[in-house]
């Protein structure tokens, strides 16, 4: 069993009001390290055995078609050990 992870983030030029709200909450709790926060989504997809190249290619297609909206989001696909 392996896990394929798809991370989806808003494109840098798209305003992220949720990330901004988190960024402004941090200093209220005394955390002053952040200059910016962006919030995204993470999908953990379980497959049997080691993912094949064909499976990973399919995940790329699914990520483009369903998991992300390419108009406003970028995604990355990786296998987690």
């Amino acid at each position: 069993m392996a896990t394929i992870v798809v991370d989806v983030m808003l494109k840098p030029e798209i305003l992220d009001p949720q990330g901004k709200a988190v960024a402004s909450a941090l200093p209220r709790l005394g955390f002053t390290f952040a200059t910016d926060v962006r919030q995204g989504k993470r999908f953990e997809i379980t497959v049997d055995g080691e993912p094949t190249a064909a499976q990973l290619a399919e995940v790329e297609v699914a990520a483009e078609k369903l998991l992300s909206n390419p108009v406003i989001e970028n995604f990355t696909v990786r296998v987690e050990k």
Binding site: L10, I14, L15, P17, Q18, A21, N69, V71, I72
Partner: peptide
Amino acid sequence: ALTRNQHL
């Protein structure tokens, strides 16, 4: 695309 209202 339609995104979260700016003021949340």
